[in-house]
Protein backbone atom coordinates (compact mmCIF):
# COMPACT_ATOMS: atom_id res chain seq x y z
CA UNK A 1 0.00 0.00 0.00
CA UNK A 2 1.50 3.33 -1.03
CA UNK A 3 1.17 6.36 1.17
CA UNK A 4 -1.14 8.15 -1.25
CA UNK A 5 -3.66 5.34 -0.86
CA UNK A 6 -3.65 6.04 2.82
CA UNK A 7 -4.60 9.65 2.27
CA UNK A 8 -7.41 9.78 -0.27
CA UNK A 9 -10.36 7.46 -0.86
CA UNK A 10 -10.73 6.10 -4.38
CA UNK A 11 -14.18 6.34 -6.00
CA UNK A 12 -15.25 9.63 -7.60
CA UNK A 13 -18.31 10.22 -5.40
CA UNK A 14 -16.34 9.34 -2.29
CA UNK A 15 -13.55 11.65 -3.35
CA UNK A 16 -16.02 14.50 -3.79
CA UNK A 17 -17.59 13.77 -0.39
CA UNK A 18 -14.16 13.63 1.14
CA UNK A 19 -13.21 16.95 -0.43
CA UNK A 20 -16.30 18.71 0.93
CA UNK A 21 -15.98 17.06 4.34
CA UNK A 22 -12.30 17.59 5.01
CA UNK A 23 -11.47 20.70 2.98
CA UNK A 24 -14.67 22.76 3.15
CA UNK A 25 -15.97 21.23 6.40
CA UNK A 26 -19.50 20.93 5.11
CA UNK A 27 -21.42 17.89 3.91
CA UNK A 28 -21.92 17.51 0.19
CA UNK A 29 -25.41 16.07 0.73
CA UNK A 30 -26.76 19.18 2.43
CA UNK A 31 -25.56 21.37 -0.45
CA UNK A 32 -27.17 19.02 -2.96
CA UNK A 33 -30.47 19.09 -1.06
CA UNK A 34 -30.39 22.90 -1.03
CA UNK A 35 -29.64 23.09 -4.77
CA UNK A 36 -32.27 20.47 -5.69
CA UNK A 37 -34.86 22.31 -3.59
CA UNK A 38 -33.90 25.60 -5.24
CA UNK A 39 -34.17 24.12 -8.75
CA UNK A 40 -37.51 22.48 -7.91
CA UNK A 41 -38.93 25.74 -6.58
CA UNK A 42 -37.66 27.63 -9.64
CA UNK A 43 -39.49 25.20 -11.90
CA UNK A 44 -42.67 25.27 -9.82
CA UNK A 45 -42.90 29.01 -9.26
CA UNK A 46 -42.00 31.82 -11.70
CA UNK A 47 -41.39 34.17 -8.78
CA UNK A 48 -38.78 32.09 -6.97
CA UNK A 49 -35.75 32.69 -9.14
CA UNK A 50 -34.81 36.34 -8.57
CA UNK A 51 -32.15 38.24 -6.68
CA UNK A 52 -34.70 40.05 -4.56
CA UNK A 53 -36.41 36.78 -3.59
CA UNK A 54 -33.04 35.23 -2.69
CA UNK A 55 -32.32 38.23 -0.48
CA UNK A 56 -35.77 37.74 1.08
CA UNK A 57 -34.92 34.13 1.90
CA UNK A 58 -31.56 35.11 3.36
CA UNK A 59 -33.18 37.85 5.42
CA UNK A 60 -35.86 35.49 6.73
CA UNK A 61 -33.13 32.95 7.57
CA UNK A 62 -30.76 35.35 9.34
CA UNK A 63 -32.19 35.11 12.88
CA UNK A 64 -32.44 31.31 12.91
CA UNK A 65 -29.09 31.11 11.13
CA UNK A 66 -27.31 33.01 13.91
CA UNK A 67 -29.02 30.86 16.56
CA UNK A 68 -28.11 27.69 14.67
CA UNK A 69 -24.43 28.69 14.71
CA UNK A 70 -24.37 28.76 18.52
CA UNK A 71 -26.43 25.58 18.66
CA UNK A 72 -23.99 23.80 16.36
CA UNK A 73 -21.06 24.64 18.62
CA UNK A 74 -23.00 23.39 21.66
CA UNK A 75 -24.17 20.18 19.95
CA UNK A 76 -20.62 19.47 18.73
CA UNK A 77 -19.44 19.58 22.34
CA UNK A 78 -22.07 17.02 23.32
CA UNK A 79 -24.16 19.69 25.05
CA UNK A 80 -27.60 21.16 24.60
CA UNK A 81 -28.94 24.70 24.93
CA UNK A 82 -32.71 25.00 25.12
CA UNK A 83 -32.64 28.56 26.44
CA UNK A 84 -31.60 30.44 23.29
CA UNK A 85 -35.14 31.27 22.14
CA UNK A 86 -35.91 32.89 25.50
CA UNK A 87 -32.50 34.58 25.61
CA UNK A 88 -33.27 36.05 22.17
CA UNK A 89 -36.40 37.63 23.63
CA UNK A 90 -34.64 38.86 26.75
CA UNK A 91 -31.75 40.35 24.75
CA UNK A 92 -34.12 42.37 22.58
CA UNK A 93 -35.93 43.72 25.63
CA UNK A 94 -32.68 44.66 27.41
CA UNK A 95 -31.31 46.35 24.27
CA UNK A 96 -34.52 48.30 23.73
CA UNK A 97 -34.79 49.16 27.43
CA UNK A 98 -31.30 50.67 27.42
CA UNK A 99 -31.78 52.99 24.47
CA UNK A 100 -35.51 53.74 24.75
CA UNK A 101 -36.54 53.66 28.41
CA UNK A 102 -33.17 54.75 29.82
CA UNK A 103 -32.42 56.92 26.77
CA UNK A 104 -28.81 55.76 26.62
CA UNK A 105 -26.90 56.22 23.34
CA UNK A 106 -28.01 53.92 20.48
CA UNK A 107 -24.97 51.61 20.63
CA UNK A 108 -25.96 50.63 24.17
CA UNK A 109 -28.72 48.60 22.51
CA UNK A 110 -25.98 46.42 21.00
CA UNK A 111 -24.07 46.25 24.27
CA UNK A 112 -27.27 45.42 26.15
CA UNK A 113 -28.48 42.70 23.78
CA UNK A 114 -25.09 40.96 23.39
CA UNK A 115 -24.27 41.46 27.07
CA UNK A 116 -27.59 40.05 28.31
CA UNK A 117 -27.21 37.06 25.98
CA UNK A 118 -23.61 36.38 26.94
CA UNK A 119 -24.43 36.73 30.63
CA UNK A 120 -27.35 34.29 30.47
CA UNK A 121 -25.11 31.82 28.60
CA UNK A 122 -22.33 32.38 31.15
CA UNK A 123 -24.78 31.54 33.97
CA UNK A 124 -25.81 28.37 32.09
CA UNK A 125 -22.16 27.36 31.84
CA UNK A 126 -21.51 27.98 35.53
CA UNK A 127 -24.43 25.82 36.64
CA UNK A 128 -23.59 23.04 34.19
CA UNK A 129 -19.87 22.79 34.95
CA UNK A 130 -19.57 23.84 38.60
CA UNK A 131 -22.73 22.32 40.06
CA UNK A 132 -22.74 19.45 37.53
CA UNK A 133 -26.42 19.78 36.70
CA UNK A 134 -27.27 18.31 33.27
CA UNK A 135 -27.33 20.89 30.45
CA UNK A 136 -30.85 19.83 29.54
CA UNK A 137 -32.12 20.81 33.01
CA UNK A 138 -30.09 24.01 33.38
CA UNK A 139 -31.01 25.40 29.97
CA UNK A 140 -34.64 24.30 30.38
CA UNK A 141 -34.64 26.28 33.61
CA UNK A 142 -33.02 29.24 31.86
CA UNK A 143 -35.69 28.99 29.15
CA UNK A 144 -38.24 29.92 31.82
CA UNK A 145 -36.02 32.34 33.74
CA UNK A 146 -34.88 34.42 30.75
CA UNK A 147 -38.44 34.63 29.39
CA UNK A 148 -39.74 35.70 32.80
CA UNK A 149 -37.07 38.36 33.28
CA UNK A 150 -37.80 39.76 29.81
CA UNK A 151 -41.50 40.02 30.61
CA UNK A 152 -40.74 41.72 33.93
CA UNK A 153 -38.40 44.32 32.38
CA UNK A 154 -40.79 45.20 29.55
CA UNK A 155 -43.49 47.61 30.82
CA UNK A 156 -46.67 45.59 31.44
CA UNK A 157 -45.06 42.68 29.63
CA UNK A 158 -45.54 44.46 26.30
CA UNK A 159 -42.99 45.37 23.65
CA UNK A 160 -40.74 48.45 23.85
CA UNK A 161 -41.11 50.54 20.69
CA UNK A 162 -39.30 53.48 19.16
CA UNK A 163 -35.69 52.41 18.65
CA UNK A 164 -33.11 54.95 17.43
CA UNK A 165 -32.32 55.01 13.71
CA UNK A 166 -28.86 53.39 13.78
CA UNK A 167 -30.28 50.37 15.63
CA UNK A 168 -33.14 49.99 13.16
CA UNK A 169 -30.55 50.12 10.37
CA UNK A 170 -29.06 46.89 11.77
CA UNK A 171 -32.35 45.18 10.95
CA UNK A 172 -33.80 47.12 8.06
CA UNK A 173 -30.82 48.81 6.41
CA UNK A 174 -29.40 47.65 3.08
CA UNK A 175 -25.72 48.55 2.71
CA UNK A 176 -24.74 47.82 -0.93
CA UNK A 177 -28.27 46.52 -1.43
CA UNK A 178 -27.78 43.64 0.97
CA UNK A 179 -29.97 43.51 4.10
CA UNK A 180 -27.85 44.20 7.22
CA UNK A 181 -28.99 40.99 9.03
CA UNK A 182 -27.65 38.96 6.10
CA UNK A 183 -24.28 40.67 6.44
CA UNK A 184 -24.29 40.07 10.20
CA UNK A 185 -25.12 36.39 9.63
CA UNK A 186 -22.34 36.08 7.05
CA UNK A 187 -19.74 37.59 9.39
CA UNK A 188 -20.88 35.44 12.32
CA UNK A 189 -20.83 32.33 10.12
CA UNK A 190 -17.35 32.94 8.71
CA UNK A 191 -15.83 33.63 12.14
CA UNK A 192 -17.55 30.64 13.74
CA UNK A 193 -16.66 28.39 10.83
CA UNK A 194 -13.02 29.27 11.35
CA UNK A 195 -13.45 28.65 15.08
CA UNK A 196 -14.97 25.18 14.72
CA UNK A 197 -13.16 23.81 11.69
CA UNK A 198 -9.69 25.33 11.93
CA UNK A 199 -8.87 26.45 15.47
CA UNK A 200 -7.72 24.32 18.39
CA UNK A 201 -10.76 25.62 20.27
CA UNK A 202 -13.03 23.99 17.69
CA UNK A 203 -11.03 20.76 17.54
CA UNK A 204 -11.20 20.47 21.30
CA UNK A 205 -14.94 21.20 21.18
CA UNK A 206 -15.40 18.23 18.84
CA UNK A 207 -13.13 16.12 21.04
CA UNK A 208 -15.07 16.73 24.27
CA UNK A 209 -18.31 15.97 22.42
CA UNK A 210 -16.81 12.79 21.03
CA UNK A 211 -15.14 11.35 24.14
CA UNK A 212 -15.02 13.65 27.13
CA UNK A 213 -12.79 11.51 29.35
CA UNK A 214 -10.29 11.00 26.53
CA UNK A 215 -10.16 14.74 25.97
CA UNK A 216 -9.63 15.32 29.68
CA UNK A 217 -6.85 12.73 29.80
CA UNK A 218 -4.96 14.54 27.05
CA UNK A 219 -5.00 17.70 29.14
CA UNK A 220 -7.90 19.61 27.59
CA UNK A 221 -9.65 21.61 30.32
CA UNK A 222 -13.14 20.38 29.58
CA UNK A 223 -15.08 22.50 32.07
CA UNK A 224 -13.51 25.79 31.08
CA UNK A 225 -14.17 24.99 27.42
CA UNK A 226 -17.82 24.20 28.15
CA UNK A 227 -18.22 27.49 30.03
CA UNK A 228 -16.88 29.38 27.01
CA UNK A 229 -19.18 27.48 24.66
CA UNK A 230 -22.36 28.25 26.62
CA UNK A 231 -21.32 31.90 26.84
CA UNK A 232 -20.84 31.99 23.06
CA UNK A 233 -24.19 30.30 22.54
CA UNK A 234 -25.85 32.89 24.77
CA UNK A 235 -24.08 35.71 22.96
CA UNK A 236 -25.22 34.34 19.58
CA UNK A 237 -28.77 34.29 20.96
CA UNK A 238 -28.18 37.91 22.03
CA UNK A 239 -27.02 38.75 18.50
CA UNK A 240 -30.11 37.04 17.07
CA UNK A 241 -32.20 39.07 19.54
CA UNK A 242 -30.54 42.27 18.34
CA UNK A 243 -31.34 41.42 14.71
CA UNK A 244 -34.93 40.49 15.57
CA UNK A 245 -35.44 43.64 17.61
CA UNK A 246 -34.01 45.85 14.87
CA UNK A 247 -36.10 44.17 12.16
CA UNK A 248 -39.41 44.65 13.94
CA UNK A 249 -38.34 47.96 15.55
CA UNK A 250 -39.30 46.72 19.02
CA UNK A 251 -37.95 44.89 22.03
CA UNK A 252 -40.57 42.16 22.26
CA UNK A 253 -40.39 39.91 25.36
CA UNK A 254 -42.30 37.15 23.55
CA UNK A 255 -39.88 37.08 20.59
CA UNK A 256 -38.10 33.84 19.76
CA UNK A 257 -40.69 31.50 21.23
CA UNK A 258 -39.66 27.88 20.37
CA UNK A 259 -36.80 29.15 18.19
CA UNK A 260 -34.41 26.83 20.06
CA UNK A 261 -36.10 23.85 18.42
CA UNK A 262 -35.94 25.46 14.98
CA UNK A 263 -32.24 26.18 15.51
CA UNK A 264 -31.56 22.57 16.55
CA UNK A 265 -33.47 21.42 13.44
CA UNK A 266 -31.31 23.65 11.20
CA UNK A 267 -28.10 22.40 12.80
CA UNK A 268 -29.06 18.75 12.41
CA UNK A 269 -30.26 19.14 8.80
CA UNK A 270 -26.83 20.66 8.20
CA UNK A 271 -25.11 17.47 9.35
CA UNK A 272 -24.40 18.16 13.01
CA UNK A 273 -24.77 15.21 15.35
CA UNK A 274 -27.18 15.52 18.27
CA UNK A 275 -24.75 13.41 20.28
CA UNK A 276 -21.59 15.45 19.80
CA UNK A 277 -18.27 15.07 18.02
CA UNK A 278 -19.46 16.01 14.55
CA UNK A 279 -20.79 19.18 13.03
CA UNK A 280 -20.44 22.04 10.61
CA UNK A 281 -21.17 25.76 10.90
CA UNK A 282 -21.65 26.19 7.15
CA UNK A 283 -23.89 23.13 7.36
CA UNK A 284 -26.02 24.84 9.99
CA UNK A 285 -26.42 27.91 7.77
CA UNK A 286 -27.29 25.65 4.84
CA UNK A 287 -29.73 23.78 7.09
CA UNK A 288 -31.38 27.09 7.99
CA UNK A 289 -31.45 28.02 4.28
CA UNK A 290 -33.05 24.69 3.36
CA UNK A 291 -35.86 25.49 5.77
CA UNK A 292 -36.00 29.07 4.46
CA UNK A 293 -36.24 27.93 0.81
CA UNK A 294 -38.95 25.41 1.73
CA UNK A 295 -41.01 28.04 3.52
CA UNK A 296 -40.48 30.69 0.86
CA UNK A 297 -41.19 28.32 -2.02
CA UNK A 298 -44.31 26.89 -0.43
CA UNK A 299 -45.49 30.43 0.35
CA UNK A 300 -45.02 31.39 -3.31
CA UNK A 301 -46.98 28.31 -4.28
CA UNK A 302 -49.69 29.44 -1.85
CA UNK A 303 -49.42 26.26 0.19
CA UNK A 304 -50.93 26.59 3.67
CA UNK A 305 -48.34 27.09 6.42
CA UNK A 306 -49.54 23.93 8.16
CA UNK A 307 -48.09 21.93 5.28
CA UNK A 308 -44.79 23.78 5.62
CA UNK A 309 -44.43 22.49 9.15
CA UNK A 310 -45.02 18.96 7.89
CA UNK A 311 -42.42 19.44 5.14
CA UNK A 312 -39.75 20.71 7.56
CA UNK A 313 -40.43 17.88 10.00
CA UNK A 314 -40.08 15.38 7.17
CA UNK A 315 -36.82 16.96 5.96
CA UNK A 316 -35.36 16.71 9.47
CA UNK A 317 -36.17 13.02 9.82
CA UNK A 318 -34.97 12.30 6.27
CA UNK A 319 -31.68 14.15 6.83
CA UNK A 320 -30.85 12.08 9.89
CA UNK A 321 -31.90 8.87 8.13
CA UNK A 322 -29.60 9.59 5.16
CA UNK A 323 -26.79 10.34 7.58
CA UNK A 324 -27.31 7.03 9.34
CA UNK A 325 -27.32 5.15 6.03
CA UNK A 326 -23.98 6.80 5.17
CA UNK A 327 -22.41 5.98 8.49
CA UNK A 328 -23.62 2.39 8.24
CA UNK A 329 -22.10 2.01 4.79
CA UNK A 330 -18.75 3.42 5.86
CA UNK A 331 -18.61 1.05 8.78
CA UNK A 332 -19.19 -1.93 6.52
CA UNK A 333 -16.63 -0.70 3.96
Amino acid sequence: MSSTDMIAPTSGWRQLQFFFDSKLHVRLESIIVLVVLGVAMSVLSPYFLSVSNFLNILLATSTIGVLAIGTTLILCSGGLDLSIGSILGLAGVVGAYFCVELEWPWFMAIVGALGAGAFAGFVNGQFITRLRIPAFIVTLGMLGIARGIGLIIAPNGGAIYGLPGPVIYLGQGRPLGIPSPVIILAIAAVLSHYLLAYSRFGWHTLAIGDNESAARATGISVESLRRKLYTISGMMAGLAGLIFMARVNAGDPTAGYTYELTAITAAIIGGTSLFGGKGSILGAVIGALIMGVLQNGLNLLAVQSYYQQIAIGAVLILAVYIDQLQTGKEKKA
Binding site: L206, A207, D210, A215, T218, I220
Partner: peptide, 13 residues
Protein backbone atom coordinates in the same frame (compact mmCIF):
# COMPACT_ATOMS: atom_id res chain seq x y z
CA UNK B 1 -12.31 10.14 19.84
CA UNK B 2 -14.02 7.69 17.52
CA UNK B 3 -15.53 10.23 15.12
CA UNK B 4 -12.25 12.09 14.56
CA UNK B 5 -9.53 10.97 12.19
CA UNK B 6 -6.08 9.59 12.91
CA UNK B 7 -4.18 12.88 13.03
CA UNK B 8 -6.81 14.53 15.26
CA UNK B 9 -6.46 11.67 17.74
CA UNK B 10 -2.67 11.49 17.71
CA UNK B 11 -2.33 15.23 18.25
CA UNK B 12 -5.34 15.59 20.57
CA UNK B 13 -4.67 18.47 22.97
Amino acid sequence: CKQQDVAANIFLG
